[in-house]
Design a protein around this nucleic acid. Structure first.
Lengths: 133, 133
DNA sequence: AGTTGACCTGGAGTGCACTCCAGGTCGTAG
DNA sequence: CTACGACCTGGAGTGCACTCCAGGTCAACT
């Protein structure tokens, strides 16, 4: 199957401009063209875009994604380096998750504080009134 | 206790320039000054900076941090809105963590693929040789 | 008295990742 | 045959979050 740039954008969740931009900066090999010179993305292209968006979500900078993309073009000999990049990214993602968990704890603490303030503003221990009523 | 800008930077993990920048954009109330006109950060300032860096880590845009900072200046009446902001941020952090977990799975899958390629390149099933030796 | 180093100000510059634009080409629908 | 919408190109513009700079002040050391 092949897809117009609009369809590829829809399926990848990237904008049309971003697709052209990724091609310009060599994140994406130039896709095939139809008879009118319009881009025709393959399933492979879409798969690669899917993986790229995952890498992007992990916060990998475009620079590193470009390195990975370039290694991919150099075949099996570059597999070791590619794996190393992914292992490093895996480490950084795990770290980031831990960091965010810590932030979640801080947020929960603060939110609980506000909740206590709210209970005070509404009257001291409304639950007690219910019990004594 | 009060701290020079250099010390505040060291303790908050922000740069000196960033501290001045945060003050300019009203993320941070102007700290006290010493006799020579130099900034003297209080423990409260440091506490607030600590919280700000947590919010930043969660990916909260400066715009929202400014809103939160501004609400804080309006006292207890703004507590509800502040709590709502934090609850929303909490939600977005939890979502982000889930998203990153998904990426971790993709990375693990890819890394495992590369590991299999490596085992093939080194010779088919070296473990078998050990067993048969 | 002079030099040093930390700090000050307002404003300009940077890097990133897009995003938008003007002007042009195609192929199909009316 | 012309009007339309989707697409094309090269290049300029945007928003964010800093980061750097020039030129100046001040207190402390030598």
């Amino acid at each position: 199957m092949s897809y117009s740039i609009a369809e590829a954008a829809r399926r990848s969740g990237l904008s049309i401009d971003t697709l052209r931009y990724y091609e310009r900066i060599k994140l994406l090999d130039p896709p095939a063209r139809d008879t009118a010179g319009r881009r025709a993305y393959s399933d492979d292209d879409l798969g690669w875009l899917g993986f790229l968006t995952k890498l992007r979500t992990t916060g990998m900078p475009i620079k590193s994604m470009r390195e990975y993309a370039s290694l991919r073009r150099h075949g099996v000999a570059s597999a070791g380096r590619r794996k190393a990049l992914l292992v490093e990214q895996r480490r950084s993602v795990a770290e980031r998750i831990a960091e965010l968990q810590g932030c979640l704890d801080v947020l929960d603490y603060k939110i609980e504080n506000y909740a206590q303030v709210e209970r005070k503003v509404l009257g001291v221990e409304p639950d007690m009134e219910e019990i004594s009523a």
